[in-house]
Design a binder for these strands. Structure first.
Lengths: 268, 268
DNA sequence: GCAGCTGTTTCACCACGTGGAACGCTGGAT
DNA sequence: ATCCAGCGTTCCACGTGGTGAAACAGCTGC
């Protein structure tokens, strides 16, 4: 366990205090933080130098700078999801031992945004740089779980896009009846499964990864923030066994992620 | 000159680096900041404890947390203006010795958001808690400068609101011809002046403050972010003297504030 | 003129931040 | 299989830099 840096912690504490009360006197910050005033003066002076706080001319009170709001921007909505998912997937992996991925839409495919493959004792199948890996929409367990639960309009858009594609692995986009059947089966079942012919990745059958998996969406008031799965070597377990062993924990994990996202949104 | 806290500075430096590259390996941060890795580990560990950064399960890279974006929000647009104005008003006051205020719209009146009265050698007229002070729309120099330069639609809204008011000091709202005349004079002149009868504050003639002032808007592509003024005891100088002495510096100050605001917006 | 409150400076102490060195792990090259 | 390079992490002895009580200064209200 590495130690933390106290002076840094205190500086951040002051920032957070100022965030709660955007304009405060030294006295107020002192009361709030219980940090002695001389120390506070040095901290505030440092924050001012870094232009994260400034002083009001009118009365010398300290105010958080607009610059601070700029920090932590320029990230897409899925970064938020990944961050919320990470600790939950970690815990899930601790518990059931098999790893999970978080996937999100990325145009004509899904992509991996987070994974607990590193945490699993069975990390055999971990080839690095997994983040950003493309995954097929219509054949993968995650893609099917996503489309089965996302709003009608979103599904139509994805299928329309894939229909324009001439890649053979997107053939299902041109067979709407079959696709509808698959998606309603998925919805009945409660989780997504791969196509029999599917071997992982963005394409169809080439280089099968030897994995099996089940997938559930991160469903929040009719909106899907992403999909998570649990994967294992297809030879190690049957789907039925895994469903019996893991599905409840798995579904709880999904709802925990959604809950975390909601909590964030509420505070903001 | 109080000293700054190095460990805190470094922590903030790491945050800023991470902001520039939202997901980075230790190595990358090390290259970027030139801070030795053991120190970085402790800094990052501290930031993690404060939940300002988290680690990606997939590869252990560090990412800025969404929490950081939440810091520095919940402030209205005028806080930004006040912050941009403060250093400029400070410099202006250093130069011309007379103090200034920044005022912004607040419903049926303007209000003070920043002032350099504390900085002026002639601080005689400083009564504390000036921030938040209400100021009359139609009789004050600042109100007139604002209305003369703001978009048509905004002016109409303000006047309509004031017309509903039954306070005597808003009488001009019911004499559109006279008001138009005043505002076009203001625009011709290039700066706003008080009504002869006006003595400061939200009301009409009561308790005159004995001040005179000139006001210019913070004009940015047709939009007005607020108004600044220069004030002095009416007995000390004539308006003509002050215009001759200060107007150019004053106008430069206004455009510097606008420039600072633009720069912020561009980066964001 | 005095008392109380807030912001600021001083200064001596010693905890705490620091970074070189060494270790462990992984992946790639041979 | 073996070596090597690169990265993350841990260790630890050094001495600087953070710390806060105490004293000071400026202002307000009584």
């Amino acid at each position: 366990m590495t130690k933390t840096i106290r002076s840094l912690e205190r500086g951040l504490q002051v920032l957070k205090t100022l965030n709660a009360t955007p304009i405060s006197s030294l006295q107020e910050i002192h009361h709030q933080t219980r940090i002695p005033k001389p120390t506070l003066l040095r901290i505030l002076h440092t924050l001012e130098q870094s232009s994260l706080v400034s002083r009001r001319l009118a009365d010398g009170r300290y105010r958080i700078s607009w610059n601070l709001a700029r920090l932590g921007r320029k990230r897409d909505r899925y970064d938020r999801v990944a961050e919320a998912a990470a600790p939950v997937l970690d815990r899930l992996c601790q518990k059931v031992s098999w790893p999970s991925d978080l996937m999100v839409p990325a145009g004509d495919h899904l992509e991996v945004r987070e994974t607990s493959r590193t945490q699993s004792p069975f990390m055999i199948y971990y080839n690095r740089d997994r983040v950003g890996m493309p995954v097929n929409w219509l054949l993968s367990a995650v893609g099917r779980a996503y489309l089965a639960y996302c709003p009608e309009s979103e599904r139509r858009k994805v299928v329309a896009l894939l229909r324009k594609s001439d890649r053979p692995e997107n053939w299902l986009a041109r067979e709407p009846a079959r696709l509808d059947e698959i998606l309603s089966e998925t919805k009945m079942r409660g989780y997504g499964l791969r196509d029999q012919t599917f071997g992982g990745g963005p394409y169809g059958m080439q280089s099968p990864d030897g994995l099996a998996g089940i997938a559930v969406p991160l469903l929040d008031r009719g909106r899907v923030h992403g999909v998570i799965n649990i994967i294992w070597p297809r030879s190690a377990r049957t789907i039925e066994d895994m469903v019996k062993q893991c599905l409840p924990d798995f579904q709880v994990a999904a709802s925990e992620i959604v809950k975390a996202l909601r909590r964030q949104a509420d505070i903001a």
